[in-house]
Design a protein around this nucleic acid. Structure first.
Length: 639
RNA sequence: GCCAGCAUAGCUCAGCUGGCCAGAGCAGCUGAUUUGUAAUCAGCGGGUCGGGGGUUCGAAUCCCUCUGCUGGCUCCA
């Protein structure tokens, strides 16, 4: 007999060789039906694998990430089986589960797969799933594994086997398909009831640009058709909220082939929105002791040689601009920090004036490969809500706290309730990758950890993700559809103060090197607004909305009255417009609704006589008639 | 940059395997209508079918190339 410890601490005895599935059955048939895999002593296993020693056990269903992963991993195998049945010469790379579904990298040889083939593959997958073939785990020797895939002629699997040790190699078999795989898998293919192949993409073998590009097939599967339908509906919703689509519809921004790819052009309404965001932050920053500055969009090449960016990114940047006579070389600025370092260094600094906080909405230009560009979230020219704080090592923690507070304020003001902070620290295995003293790194990392704790932030910590010049913290924000975005960032930097030889005179009358903190609560205005558009589906908070209300006269006769009203509301600092077209009121309402104007003021004979307004809220409907002052109050309450 | 796909009017799209002056809805303009909570009616204008080259008697349709876009890969100071 062996002892099995459950997550709630309960311990029960079972015969040695019992499987997780059998244990589940002993609890309830219903549970057993839902079990996809199980963690045995913390390792995810097949639910059908015999347990032969005292163990902890956690059963995984669709509701656990582990359960979903197992399900999708098995689905990848099912897809591979279908592919092999349809295209006998296909060779397989790797096929893991991902956040939403799975993929398999395959080498189709001469054959070109297109999404038109998806139907056929999906059908085959469902046919094979209906066979309810069990996933059978087999331990094989390295020699046997090699001879199997040599015979099959799959060089990718052979390469994978090459990296494995004898004794740790397993195959999984379902139906006629055998794959090299660590597992685990669901009990049988019958659980896969709904299949959808999503897209095709090229993917380099083992992520290496110099190696062969395989075809990556993305898919997702579910246990119920209904779940697939819901998932596809969610994707539809995301598509409706796509900032590229809404940005065009609401006339916020545009792109022009003539101006160039990846260079967003802000239209009047988008500019109104963006300016409000900037003003909000500018005010808040001034309150917090930041000093706004303005620096040029280009800088001499030497500036970036000094900063080190030229050596690191020179080749992969927009190339220098040359002056015609003098032959000077200028670079479009890819960052604001070198300019800000020059500002710090333009005169001697005393410890008394630290921290110095230099802020600029600085537009920067970075070369991105053409395939990388995407709406506002990946562009070649963008504006950072940048600031650099020059302080002493001792001040780092307090400055960090201040920035955390500001960033939280920004996110919450814009309706991002769900976010976490990702702390990126050194890779302990590679100390040589980093510049700056070990003591300073220790202090800075500790300062970040302490500051986030003090700020009560939910954090995740990743080792090895720090920049070479210092540890950093990124805000990971979840939007209304549950998608995660990286927005604001705070980075400690020991490198630039060194390179620019920045100093201050300390209490001891000696020279010291300040620490620099880069920070951007929004990240970039472009990216932030892109995410904001999708988060709120184009229905911006009232204080940001370029159009807060529309005045809709019932007929032309009330147009001048509407204009008077507009003037009164403008005097109350509210923004709107009059729809004075000779259209029926139903039409004007519809158009305002589609434009997502938050409030509509309908005025006709009754309102003109009583001096009141009939208020309608976008998406909600009629709020009834009220005095104009009451409407102003209503608006101000929501600002 | 690489793989796959897409590009027809301001927008959304039709135009099958090459064949009469390239279509629709919405938007726009003009006129009529003067309207009470999500689309009033009529008329009109608008496209060298993304650019260039080729195949063909004939190309929106087939081929090549460039540009842009989409989904990924690689990259991201």
């Amino acid at each position: 007999m062996i002892k099995i410890t459950f997550p709630d601490g309960n311990v029960r005895e079972f015969e040695s060789g019992v499987t997780a599935m059998e244990i589940a059955q002993s609890i309830s048939e219903g549970l057993a039906r839902n079990v996809l895999s199980a963690s045995v002593n913390g390792v995810v296993w097949d639910s059908t694998r015999p347990i032969t020693s005292d163990s902890t056990l956690a059963l995984h269903t669709w509701n656990d990430p582990e359960g979903k992963n197992t399900f999708w991993h098995s689905s990848a195998h099912l897809m591979a089986e279908a592919l092999e049945a349809l295209y006998p010469n296909v060779k397989f790379g790797i096929g893991p589960p991902i956040e939403n579904g799975f993929y398999y990298d395959v080498d189709m040889g001469e054959q070109v797969l297109s999404s038109d083939d998806f139907d056929q593959i999906e059908k085959k997958m469902l046919d094979l799933a209906r066979e309810k073939n069990p996933f059978v785990r087999k331990e094989v020797s390295k020699a046997d594994a090699i001879s199997y895939f040599t015979e099959k002629g799959d060089e990718y699997k052979l390469e994978l086997i090459d990296g494995l040790n004898d004794g740790e190699i397993t195959f999984y078999e379902q139906g006629n398909f055998v794959d090299l795989c660590r597992g685990p898998h669901i009990p049988d293919t019958g659980k896969i009831k709904a299949v959808k192949l999503m897209s095709l993409a090229g993917a380099y073998w083992r992520g290496d640009e110099s190696r062969k590009q395989l075809t990556r097939i993305y898919g997702i599967t579910f246990q119920k058709q209904k779940e697939l339908t819901e998932y596809l509906e969610l994707l539809e919703e995301a598509k409706k909220r796509d900032h590229r689509k809404l940005g065009a519809e609401l006339e916020l921004f545009m792109f022009s082939e003539k101006v160039g790819a990846g260079l967003p052009i802000w239209l009047p309404k988008g500019t109104a929105l963006r300016s409000r965001l900037e003003d909000f932050l500018k005010k808040e920053q001034i309150r917090r002791g930041y000093q706004p500055v303005i620096t040029p969009h280009i800088g001499k090449k030497e500036l970036y040689v000094t900063s080190g960016h030229y050596a690191k990114y020179g080749e992969d940047s927009f190339q220098p601009i040359h002056t015609p006579r003098e032959g000077e070389e200028f670079l479009l600025k890819p960052m604001n920090c070198p300019h800000h370092c020059e500002i710090y260094g333009h005169r001697p600094r005393s410890y008394k004036e630290l921290p110095v906080r230099i802020a600029e909405f600085g537009t920067v230009y970075r070369y991105e490969q053409s395939g990388e560009l995407h709406g506002l979230t990946r562009v070649r020219g963008f504006t950072q809500d940048d600031a650099h704080i020059f302080c002493t090592q001792e001040q780092v923690k307090d400055e960090f706290l201040g920035v955390l507070d500001l960033t939280k304020l920004v996110l919450e003001k814009l309706g991002f309730e769900d976010y976490t902070a990702q702390i990126s620290l050194r890779d302990p295995e590679n100390p040589d990758k980093y510049i700056g003293s070990v003591e300073n790194w220790d202090k800075a990392e500790q300062a970040i950890i302490d500051a986030t704790k003090e700020a009560g932030l939910e954090t995740t910590t990743v080792l090895g993700e720090a920049a070479f010049y210092g540890p950093k913290l990124d805000f990971m924000v979840k939007d209304a559809l549950g998608r995660r975005w990286q927005l604001g960032t705070i980075q400690v930097d020991y490198n630039l103060p060194e390179r620019f030889e920045l100093e201050y005179t300390g209490t001891d009358n000696a020279m010291h090197r300040p620490v620099m903190i880069h920070r951007a609560p929004f990240g970039s205005m472009e990216r932030f607004i892109g995410v904001l558009i999708e988060h709120c589906g184009g229905k911006f908070p009232l204080w940001l909305n370029p159009e807060q209300f529309a005045i809709l006269p019932i007929s032309d006769r009330y147009n001048s009255y509407a204009e008077d009203m507009l003037a009164q509301l403008a005097a109350a600092d509210l923004r709107g417009f009059v729809d004075d077209r000779s259209e029926k009121i139903g039409r004007k309402i519809r158009d305002a609704e589609v434009r997502k104007v938050p409030f509509m003021l309908i005025i006709g004979e009754q309102e003109a006589e009583s001096g009141q307004v009939a208020v309608r809220k976008q998406g909600e409907g009629d709020l009834g008639v009220m005095e104009l002052e009451a409407f102003v109050t209503l608006m101000n309450e929501q600002l």
